[in-house]
Every structure is written in structure tokens, then in C-alpha cells.
Amino acid sequence: MNIAEVHVIILAGGHGSRLWPLCRHDHPKSLLDLGSGETLIEATLRRALMITTSDRVHLVTGADHQESITTIGAAFGITSIIVEPIYKDTAPALCLAAMLIHQEHPDALIVSTPFDHLISGESSQWVDTLTQAVIDAQSGDLICVGVRPRSPDTTLGYIHAPDPSSPSTPHRARLFKEKPDRATAEHYLRTGEHFWNSAIMACRSEAFLQHVRAFAPSVIAAVEAALDQYGQPEAESWSRIQAVAIDHVVLEPAAAAGVVQVVPASFDWADMGTWDALATRAPALFAPENVVTVDGTAPAVFAHSDAPSTRYAILGIDDLIIVNTGDVLVITNRAHACDMKRLVATIFERGWGDLL
């Protein structure tokens, strides 16, 4: 890997509404510590510095969190903070970052990654996987890191990329499928031809922008139109950009065109996007000693340090997730935990803005 050419884009925007009420406007998901002693964004920065240098790491965040993200980045020697006036999902954010990087570094190869992943295993596994992605990205293709499914998870995106016919042939992505139903996810698991989409990508910056122009010309045109004379996004113009995910507008048509490859991850990976995932992968955050259950499965109970000392008695209900932050008590089940955004929207409509 030529480390001088590798630039890492870390997408650190959004509030993490699927983990409400723990995540709020003044305490986004990027600042969560899952019990490791470091926040999610700090862990992501540490991994980024395994594959490049601090002057080639770029944090993309919203105006609301610019101060906290800047402070965290500075502790790692990172000064490139790209600020979206308003969160517009991953396609505009990646276009903006890629354009700014390419202007200064025409030969840059970009690696983009979200911050809200739990990645474990030996550090060499992360480095080896990303090194292979960077090597493959020299071709000009979009390279996605895929994770072999461990279960029929219906909350994740999948990539159909059958095993190549020979070791020297890359995994070619054929199809992206977001959040399939249970039967489809079970089928994907049985075939062995599908990966979870980790949302970690690599591509030459020039090639990435070419792919966006080919498959999502309205997105890149809108981003270009929103930049001021200094090349920074102007708030009012940026607010008019449509919020769209890179998966839908670029990766899906690019896969159909045969220009997406998949590199299998050798590390253990989990998306920390829902309370169900959090309860499964970070059980130390939950407090079963305060729970009594009769005729039901033991619930996952998260009690914030601000919450009163509450004991929970559950009768005849399975798969509960209970979140107590002191000012609000949320009760749901694992099947609905991935749909927290609907509850947040209803809370907003109710006028309970102080909880958001």
C-alpha cells in the first residue's frame, strides 16, 4: 500500500436517532462509548491511522457537532474537518469530501468508512483487508468490503457477489439489497453467495467522481452548485440538496454495470445502528441484575447513569428492550428496535422536543 496516496473519509454525521433516547442532538452516536473506554469515533480514527497518516484523514460532520468532532480529531493530529450545513445522507457527503480531496490531491485513493461499527479481531486483519481493497481500487472500480453473514439479519444491507471462478478473479457485485425480509435473508445465508454490506469502500478519487457523474449526475451537480467561491458548502443551497444514500444512487447501478468488486473482510464486524445490535454486541452496557422475569425471555435493559435506581419486573413478555434515561422510559421489542426513527418522528410531532 502506498500510504502517501490513501485518504480516509470518516462519515461522522447524523444524530443516531435509531439509538434514541441515548443519542440526541447534543450527544450524537459518534460520542458513545460501548464499554471499551473510547468513543465510536475515536476507535474509527485509530483504525484510520493504521492505513494512512493523520494529514490524510478527513472527518465529515454536521454543523451541530463541528466543535466536538474538531476537538476529538485534534487529539489524533487530524485537522481536516468537512462540515455539512445540514445532514443529507451519504451520497452528497461523499461527493463533497471526494471533490475537496481530489482538488488538492489528484492522485488520491479514498477509503470511506462510517464511524458506527464495532470491529474486532487482530489489527492486522483490518490492515490486510483494507490493503487488498486499496490494491483492487487501482483498477478504477468501486471496491466494497463485504462481511460473510453469521445470521439472517433483516436490518442490514446485502451484496450478491458469488465466489469467483478462480483465486485471481475478483468477487463481482451483482446486486445490492437493503434490509430483506426474513425468508430472503435466510435464503441469502444458505446460498453463501451474499455479503453484509459494511459500507466501507475504496476507490480512486477521480474514478469515484466519474462513477457519480455517470450514475447520479443530479447529485454531483447539486453539490457543485452548493459550493461557494471558496469551495465550501453554502447553507441555503445545501439545504435544497436531496438526501440520498450512496448505495441507492451509485452502488446499485454501478453493480449492474459490472464496476463494483467485493473484498471479503477478515475481521469481525457489527453495525451498531440499533438497540438490538447494541444489546447483542455490547451486553456489558445492560443490567440484568435489576430484572426479574417470569414466563418470558430476559429483557435487555439499559439504564443511563442519570436514571433513578429502578428495578424491572416482567411477566409474560418476550424479547423486550427497555431504555431508561431518567427523563424518558422507552419500551420496545427486538423486532421493532430497528424502527426507532418512527417513534422519534412521533415524539417530535407530539411537541416533546426537549427529549430530542
Rank of each mutant, 00 (worst) to 15 (best):
V6I: 13
A12T: 05
G13Q: 12
H15E: 07
H15T: 09
G16N: 04
W20S: 07
R24P: 00
D33H: 04
E38M: 08
L40S: 05
L45G: 05
L49E: 06
M50K: 14
S54A: 13
S54V: 02
A63W: 12
I72N: 09
A75E: 14
I86N: 12
D89K: 15
T90M: 05
T90A: 10
A93W: 11
A93I: 09
L94G: 08
L96F: 13
L96C: 07
A97L: 10
A97W: 12
A98I: 12
A98V: 14
A98C: 13
E104T: 15
D107G: 11
V111S: 05
D116S: 12
H117D: 12
G121P: 00
Q125G: 08
Q125L: 09
V127F: 05
Q132H: 11
Q132G: 01
S139N: 08
D141N: 14
V145T: 05
P149T: 08
R150E: 13
S151M: 03
T155M: 00
G157E: 02
H160L: 08
A161I: 03
P162F: 03
K177I: 00
A185G: 09
E186R: 15
E186K: 15
H187Y: 09
R190P: 00
H194K: 08
S198T: 12
S198I: 02
A202L: 03
S205F: 03
V212Y: 11
F215N: 10
A221S: 14
V223Q: 06
A225G: 11
A225E: 13
A226P: 00
P233S: 10
R240I: 02
A243K: 11
V244Q: 15
A256L: 06
Q261E: 08
G273M: 05
G273F: 05
T274P: 00
N290D: 09
N290Y: 12
V292H: 15
V294H: 09
V294T: 11
A313L: 07
G316Y: 03
L320W: 07
V328N: 10
V328M: 04
L329H: 10
L329E: 08
V330S: 13
N333G: 04
A337P: 00
R342I: 00
R350A: 10
W352V: 01
W352Y: 09
D354G: 15
D354C: 07
L355R: 10
L356V: 07
